[in-house]
Simulated scan of single mutants.
Amino acid sequence: MSSPSIGKSILLAKCPKCRKGEIFSVSLYSYYKLTDIKKRCDVCAANLLPEPDFYYGAMYISYAFSVALFINVMIVLNVFFDDPELWVYIVSVVGANILLLPFMQRYSKVLYLYGLGKLKYSPPYNQQG
């Protein structure tokens, strides 16, 4: 059995230690408690909340996502619509942020956990059924 890749594990929001357990208690399509993280992984029992307020640092990643989205929306509007009016920029940027906010918040926490969570991949968990 091949080990799951880190990219696929991040995309599917899996535990960094076993890459099988879920990080979040609800699915991405559920807006009820969308960004609540489990305390422990169901598969390997890794601590997904290393310290109180650990995920406050994920706000920086979420901010970077918002800035990147803003820049991309501005580029698309300028290229395809030949410099539209100001209200089009505002509505487009606000609409895109509202639409993608759940994704940006969730994946900022996943990236923060993978980057600074000090949980390293441990292959024996991958071989469990």
Rank of each mutant, 00 (worst) to 15 (best):
G117N: 15
V73I: 15
V67T: 14
C44K: 07
V26H: 05
Y32A: 11
R19K: 13
N126F: 14
V93S: 09
F24I: 07
N97R: 07
L100C: 02
L86S: 13
K120C: 04
V26N: 09
M1P: 04
F81I: 08
I90S: 11
Y29W: 11
F103H: 00
D42V: 03
L111N: 14
A68S: 04
L77V: 02
V91R: 06
P52C: 05
M59T: 12
A96C: 13
N126W: 14
C15W: 11
D36K: 03
S92T: 02
E51R: 06
K39T: 11
Y114D: 00
A68T: 10
N126L: 13
I23S: 13
S2A: 08
I6N: 12
Y55P: 01
V76T: 06
K120A: 14
S66P: 03
S2E: 06
L116I: 13
I61Y: 00
N72R: 07
L49Y: 09
L119H: 11
M1K: 09
Q128T: 05
L116T: 12
S92I: 03
S27G: 15
S66M: 11
A46P: 13
F65S: 01
L116H: 14
Y29P: 05
P124L: 05
A68K: 06
G115W: 05
R40S: 10
S62C: 11
I61L: 10
F70W: 08
K33I: 00
C41G: 01
N126P: 12
I75Y: 03
D83G: 03
V73H: 07
P123L: 05
A45G: 04
A64F: 06
E22F: 10
G21N: 07
R40D: 05
A58T: 00
K118Q: 09
L100D: 01
L116Y: 12
L116W: 15
G115E: 01
S3L: 15
L49I: 12
A58I: 03
L116C: 09
I10T: 09
R40N: 14
K33F: 04
A46E: 13
A46I: 09
Q128F: 04
L77W: 05
I98G: 00
K8D: 12
Y63E: 06
Y55M: 05
A58S: 12
D83V: 10
D53V: 00
G129E: 01
I37H: 04
V110P: 04
P4W: 13
M59F: 09
P16L: 10
S2N: 08
